[in-house]
Design a binder for these strands. Structure first.
Lengths: 191, 191
DNA sequence: TTCATTGTTGACCGTTCGGTCCAGAATTGC
DNA sequence: GCAATTCTGGACCGAACGGTCAACAATGAA
């Protein structure tokens, strides 16, 4: 019994996510966001609350997307192959994609140290990711793909940390072919 | 034949570095900086140029300090011991120190993607760090501490990337004791 | 002592910030 | 049709932003 919205919430949120991802929270102005989202100022405040609330929705959307990606990959028959695939996918990104960095890591460093709410959010999401990978490695042990003397939880922590490090390295120097060394040495931990 | 400065440039720069480190570039205002540095507005513009120039000096100071730290450590007789020491030092930081994160990684993600000058700076510094570590590992090979079948350059890349990843993990979750797993698995690459 | 030079101080600049207000347009139930 | 409700667009808000300017204080060579 009232007027309908002229824009799609999900589309606008996707655009906002990309802007925040590219520039970080502080460097992104409301004007930037509104232009990218293609909506008016008031529509934004009515629909999402304020800048911080919009940011958190965008961040959660980003993490959901990444989590879906990785969960999907790791559910493949060969867990080792899937993990290699994750790393290879990063290596084969274009320099532009590498330059872009990781929205999650950026947020952890830019906001989490001063924003307990965001810190909790990132912690919780990190734990979920670790669980998914640890479970996959446990599965790999059952199929004898991974030696039973390995500690799946420790391996999951190690691989995810190295993955983060590789992300940072790729952002610093997107054209450096030496990053393959990082992947090969990281994957040796599975032998 | 003119008035002398009432403040010490190095002291003021150190303070500015800490503020930028804690908050990042965008979230730090000139007012924040001037208060922390304890100097007047005009003194700052006369001495350092503008906000960006001050930031770059602060960033270089930070990287110099870290580079001196690591260079000093890896020059110890046992290279393996020194590398373990680097990781252990991070693990034994207080939660507050861990939360603080790494100024270099923050800058790489916040500014480097849009600021070619800063990107070049970070790339060059990363390469120097890699060289220092690769040379130390080569030295370790000569003293038979490290097997001669290893690739020092690849190992240096891998260890530095994992170190970055550990830094990010420590920032995300400063109280997590599981980060030791990352260190132990990373150091296995030296066996 | 004089005077050119440099450092300090605080007022001031235009711009941009995130956020609010309100008038009017569009939609739906009656 | 009407009335109730919601959405939209633009004017507007005070505050904070990075940066400049000009008056004044300190210094040292002549």
């Amino acid at each position: 019994m009232a007027r309908t919205k002229e824009f799609e919430r999900e589309y606008a949120l996707e655009r906002a996510m990309n802007i925040f991802w590219e520039r970080g929270y502080e460097a992104t102005s409301m004007a930037d966001l509104l232009e990218a989202m293609g909506i008016g100022r008031q529509s934004m405040y009515d629909t999402f609350g304020d800048k911080r609330a919009l940011f958190i929705e965008a961040l959660e959307r980003y993490i959901d997307q990444r989590q879906d990606e990785y969960s999907c990959m790791v559910s493949a028959p060969s867990v080792k192959g899937a993990i290699r695939g994750m790393f290879e996918a990063l290596l084969s990104e274009s320099p532009k994609e590498k330059r872009r960095g990781c929205f999650g890591i950026l947020t952890t460093l830019e906001l989490a140290p001063h924003d307990p709410g965001i810190a909790k959010l990132m912690q919780a999401r990190q734990r979920i990711l670790e669980d998914v990978m640890a479970e996959a490695l446990t599965r790999a042990q059952k199929t004898k793909e991974l030696g039973k003397e390995k500690d799946p939880r420790a391996l999951a922590r190690f691989l995810l940390a190295t993955f983060s490090g590789l992300r940072v390295a790729a952002t610093t120097d997107p054209h450096n072919p030496g990053h393959r060394d990082i992947v090969e040495l990281a994957l040796k931990s599975l032998d």
